[in-house]
Design a protein around this nucleic acid. Structure first.
Length: 391
DNA sequence: GCTATTTGACCATG
DNA sequence: CATGGTCAAATAGC
């Protein structure tokens, strides 16, 4: 199998190097942007946070410092992957590749199991290898009808399950695209009411819409939180327009909170990263830690307008979130996600993919809003401002 | 009758 | 084994 793909692999490697070079360049840009952000932050008497945030400037300073450090590491890693500095550097995580990091493999495995196992289930229950991103949605806007008001994120969702989550007071609702069967749209989302604020829902989107049907987007909810995403693959175009809407909304009120974005692991702070996108790795299930929901099953089946605002920075999780922009196919798809660092460093690949997606938009006319970027390669937690993800 | 939701069970994963 | 994600039969609503 490998022998037959030699030429293709060479081509991939070549592309990988090129991409890595570009990545390094983009990371350098991020680095510069962080520096600019640093100067901007400390230029202002009071850094602007969302209402839910209470970070201190000292924390911000610390975070910026970490960002600078991490971006430098990222640049180094990218260059390493490009062969510019010899052996590719492996992230701390790369050594232990999550079994879920190789999604295409899972897909095949899934298929195999379908063949081997009984026909009890027609469909595979393996965790989906789809791009993910998280949003926190405030639905309590009185002017828009309150918590139970009609909400719509631009797509039709059908609830297919609900589950009580350990440690969460509120059950998590599982939704999939209404047009899953008719159009094969695999987009799903999980909705869970947050513990801190009953009007805030933590929405985790998985997969992107390939359906053409869209309901009329409403703007009743306030985007207060961030998107997160993992398993990034690039070139996603279909079905991402609503995410762009989110981002557009986001741009209007972008604020940043850097508290709690500390290095890896401890992460008990309920850092709410306003309008930032958090990157984590898929090796850890999402939302187990911070998606404390409060408790009520009344999830508007329809929709929430994901407001990229506060995402409980699941610093302990390996959740990798990024704007849906730039997210695309999966499995055999390549895109930047197919950077091809291969299984050797699939997690890193994801990071880089996301970063690439993020950095690809730093030239946005909107300017660069590097909300919170936590390139902690120790913990590999990334926080990137969604405004940078405009497609 | 059709479509959406609820809910218990099944299954993958760690 | 505990937990989370999904399925699908039962049920509800239009």
């Amino acid at each position: 199998m490998e022998s037959t793909d030699t030429g293709e692999q060479h081509h991939k490697i070549h592309n990988q190097n090129q991409i890595s070079i570009v990545l390094a360049s983009e990371l350098s840009r991020i680095h510069q942007l962080v520096i600019q952000l640093e100067s901007q932050i400390f230029k202002q008497p009071a850094f602007t946070y969302c209402t839910a945030c209470t970070s201190t400037s000292s924390t911000s300073k610390s975070i910026v410092s970490q960002l600078l450090s991490s971006t430098e590491k990222s640049i180094f890693l990218a260059k390493s992957c490009a062969g510019l500095q010899g052996e590719p550097a492996s992230s701390p995580r790369s050594a232990s590749v999550s079994p879920r990091s190789d999604m295409s493999e899972l897909a095949f495995k899934c298929q195999d199991q379908q063949d081997d196992n009984s026909n009890k289930r027609e469909t595979c229950k393996k965790r989906k290898a789809l791009p993910r991103w998280r949003s926190q949605v405030r639905v309590g806007s009185m002017s828009m009808g309150g918590v139970e008001g009609p909400l719509d994120d631009g797509h039709s969702w059908r609830k297919y399950g609900q589950k009580d989550i350990l440690g969460a007071k509120h059950p998590r609702g599982y939704y999939r695209c209404t047009y899953r069967n008719s159009q094969g749209c695999l987009a799903t989302k999980q909705v869970q009411r947050t513990d801190e604020d009953p009007t805030v829902f933590d929405v985790v989107y998985q997969g992107t819409h390939t359906c053409t049907n869209k309901s009329n987007p409403r703007s009743g909810s306030n985007i207060i939180s961030s998107g997160s995403n993992n398993n990034i693959v690039n070139n996603q175009t279909v079905g991402s327009s609503h995410e762009e809407d989110y981002l557009n909304s986001l741009k209007a009120t972008l604020t940043v909170k850097t508290e709690g974005l500390g290095p890896s692991s401890i992460g008990q702070e309920e850092a709410q990263v306003c309008n930032s996108i958090s990157f984590s790795f898929p090796s850890t299930p999402i939302g187990s830690g911070h998606v404390a929901s409060t408790a009520d099953n009344s999830f508007p089946s329809g929709s929430f307008l994901p407001t990229f605002a506060n995402s409980p920075a699941t610093s302990e999780s390996n959740y990798f979130s990024v704007s849906p922009c730039g997210v695309s196919g999966y499995g055999a798809g390549v895109g930047v996600g197919g950077l091809g660092f291969g299984k050797v460093d699939s997690d890193l690949t994801e990071v880089i993919s996301a970063l690439s997606a993020a950095t690809s938009t730093t030239n946005s006319p909107m300017g660069v809003d590097v909300g919170g970027v936590d390139f902690g390669f120790d913990g590999l937690d990334f926080e990137i401002d969604p405004c940078s993800f405009l497609c």
